[in-house]
Computed example of a mutant assay.
Amino acid sequence: MSRVLLVGCGALGTALGVRLLARGDEVVALRRDPAGLPSDFTRLAVDLAAGPPAVPLPEADAAVITLPPISLPDGGNGAAAALRHLRAALPSTPERTILVSSTRVFDGAPAGTVLTEADAPVPGSERARALAETEEVARELFGAFVLRPAGIYGPGRDFLVRTVREGRPANHGRLTNRIHEADLVRTLWALLTASAPPAVLHAVDQAPAPLGEVLGFLAGRLGVPVPADAGGGPEGRVFDGAALLGLLGSLGFPGYRDGYDAMLDGAA
């Protein structure tokens, strides 16, 4: 049995934790309010951004960190501070740590750029700069493997479906990338269990597409008009998903049509 520390532990961490429990691992979840987490998790109420926990944390074989960007009252990077407090509270560094970041670290790259894991981040916003800094702190303190998902969708993550149903205008020309939550959980599992996982991995499916194309598909499925084009011109980037495909072998939802069909049919 291994002990896996889930730091942040929202919907993604919870789905991974359930799978780890089924394997026989012990799951320790850290969150400011862990009350809604599964009772089989060891649940610890900890606000790492505010400071180190009052008591030392248990030793862990692995850690999966899913902290969102956090802005401190002084404008500092709360996620980076949380990582420093986490390391100070642990008796030793876990053998494997995975930081879930975001493809947003490239939001300063030119529109239409095709990006792979070999490309260095190009942050253009404060949020992106905070994410890039958090990645560096995670590497420094934990030797972390960095996972950068694109837009996550799946049950309960239906922003685009609601956009179409409500007819909200959107920029049809924006290039978009996404990953189904089920494939993202599989990716975290693979990064935890692979003998030599990649140091950096972009979690994207095999079907990057202009937003207008995705909205048109959803409108057809829902039987409603396509939302109006809000304009704004070309923007967004394309992420090559070859490395993820190489790690997993195949995706359960290789493109948005597969994933949204399953969502709308109630299958996933």
Results as ranks from 00 to 15, higher is better:
G112C: 07
T163I: 03
G252C: 10
H85C: 11
G223E: 12
L48V: 14
D61Q: 11
L99S: 01
L264S: 09
L141N: 07
G252R: 14
P94Q: 13
G24W: 08
L83V: 13
P254A: 06
L191K: 00
D25Y: 02
R165M: 15
A120G: 11
F41G: 07
Y256G: 03
E95R: 15
R148L: 03
T93W: 09
T187H: 13
Y260I: 01
V185A: 14
V114F: 13
R84F: 01
A118K: 12
N77F: 11
L86G: 02
G75D: 12
I179T: 09
L247I: 12
G8K: 01
L21M: 10
R165A: 15
V105P: 02
L184I: 08
I152A: 03
L67N: 00
E235R: 14
A194C: 09
L211H: 06
A109G: 05
L191E: 00
V164Y: 01
G252F: 03
G13Q: 03
G236S: 05
D119C: 11
P198T: 04
L251N: 03
A15W: 04
V114S: 13
P73W: 13
A190R: 10
D107G: 04
G10Y: 08
A79D: 00
E140A: 15
L5W: 02
A196M: 11
P123C: 09
L264A: 05
N77L: 09
